[in-house]
Design a protein around this nucleic acid. Structure first.
Lengths: 264, 264
DNA sequence: AAGCGTAAGGTTGTCTGACAACATGGCAAC
DNA sequence: GTTGCCATGTTGTCAGACAACCTTACGCTT
């Protein structure tokens, strides 16, 4: 595992992708780039505690040889690990594993993707539920007129989408982001935006034909209206409760899918 | 601004750091690396919407010439932007600005650091308050015996630190992380750990001589004990309320510091 | 005139070699 | 034992080259 040759893996991945393009395989290891694979390979070894905090990683030259790639590729992988706060490098000395108090970035994707995708989606939704409910509560207390106008704009755009039975996921995002903005806490706003981006694929389900058939879009819309009114009336407790319940619907849908999956 | 020469800036930054080392200047632009500066330069231009979503960035060669650095440096900066989901690159085509729905990493540091550091700390604390309160509520509902044991271990280590008036910040971290782990939601656990890491410097104040003098450590300890008991008794509402109040104390201390700052 | 295949040039991905900047350990001088 | 210097190793940066790939334009066919 340590001395794997990436070019070999890459060849296999390429072949797999070629098959996938023909519909033979659904979604496996992407070919991406050598640097990407080196990054994930090193990240995996870091997550497995192959090296302890403070330990010195092999030299760039050694890493390149063990993975069968050039130093430039290794350097890009190390640069990303450094940007995430996983390692620190000192010119002339080497690269060292940094302790957890240096973490500089939060990502939702697992290097070891052995976890069930649905479970991961569920976990992110729970985190989203907590943060968005808190954001709504703050928004009710701090919203200005301009904030209300922004939320209303997104709300009306969504109403129009529902009426036309078209995809309103972009406006859905805008609605939740506008509420987060109304909290007047830029970190919360940025984080809500980030969490929203983690669902760019799965959330579409609410707005496609199936979603309209089941009536998800309509129910979500009445949720949204109620949340807006609570924020407008500065009823923080209500905004929090409604927002929490709104995300709970999405959670319940994921739980249903998980049950369906187990039955098969 | 666009055609700045990084080597020039670097020279100035080096000189500034040299002065700082002699105590003349406190903390200014770090010299770091050329790639680091190129990354922040590009990030700043992206945040200022210099290019619209989908626009093509200048070629690596052009970027390198405009910043006065080699292509290798530019490539490292672009690699980091790509890892954050800010841009996408296609071999043979170029680098393109991606839309916000591709965000792949959450960071608390601002590229445009024109914001008050205290305000930023306040905003992160508010986010932390929301997430940790939610995590405590879930922990109360889902904790196993092993989770309780982990929390208790950290709690007792902190008690010992308080008794010895030594630095217990590491155990403080461990306590909050253990609660987040007890939520049995790995994303929440990871995020709480990440937020904790954003305070590696400022949180020490609770545990130094001043903190002991004011009694912050002691008060925090009674908070911790109460939170633990609520989780043990599976009283989610209480755990949530106590955790919220606990972080509120830290928020209030920051607000005090902000007032002191305004007076000067 | 419209469609299509091909060739040319441009751009990113990767490799190689080189040198500068810095760190570390050992050795010699005191 | 301590100090200072030097050889060696490592990371940071640069330059050039080629492969893989994309885009565009040109010329040919229909």
């Amino acid at each position: 595992m340590l001395s794997d040759n990436l070019t070999l893996e890459r060849g296999i991945a390429r072949a797999a992708t070629a098959l996938a393009d023909h519909g033979v395989i659904s979604a496996l290891a992407r070919p991406s780039s050598l640097a990407d694979e080196a990054y994930h390979s090193l990240l995996l070894q870091l997550d497995m505690n192959l090296w302890k905090v403070g330990d010195k990683l092999p030299t760039e030259k050694a890493l390149g040889e063990s993975l069968g790639v050039s130093r430039a590729v290794i350097r890009e992988a190390l640069a990303r690990l450094r940007a995430d706060g996983r390692i620190e490098t000192r010119q002339g000395a080497g690269a060292f594993v940094s302790d957890r108090s240096k973490l500089a970035a939060f990502r939702t994707d697992h290097a070891n993707s052995d976890t069930d995708p649905l479970k991961q989606e569920l976990e992110i939704l729970e985190l989203r539920q907590i943060v968005e409910a808190g954001a709504a509560e703050l928004a009710a207390a701090r919203r200005h007129e301009t904030d209300l106008a922004n939320i209303r704009t997104a709300l009306e755009a969504m109403l129009e989408s529902v009426a036309k039975r078209s995809d309103g996921s972009a406006h859905d995002d805008a609605f939740h982001n506008a509420i987060a903005q109304a909290s007047h806490n830029s970190q919360i706003a940025k984080f809500v935006e980030f969490l929203g981006a983690q669902f760019s694929n799965s959330r579409k389900a609410t707005w496609d034909d199936i979603g309209y058939g089941v009536g998800i879009a309509a129910v979500g819309q009445s949720d949204h209206s109620a949340i807006y009114k609570a924020i407008e009336l500065q009823d923080g407790a209500k905004a929090k409760r409604l927002s929490h319940a709104h995300v709970q619907r999405a959670i319940d849908r994921v739980l249903l899918r998980m049950n369906d999956q187990k039955v098969e």
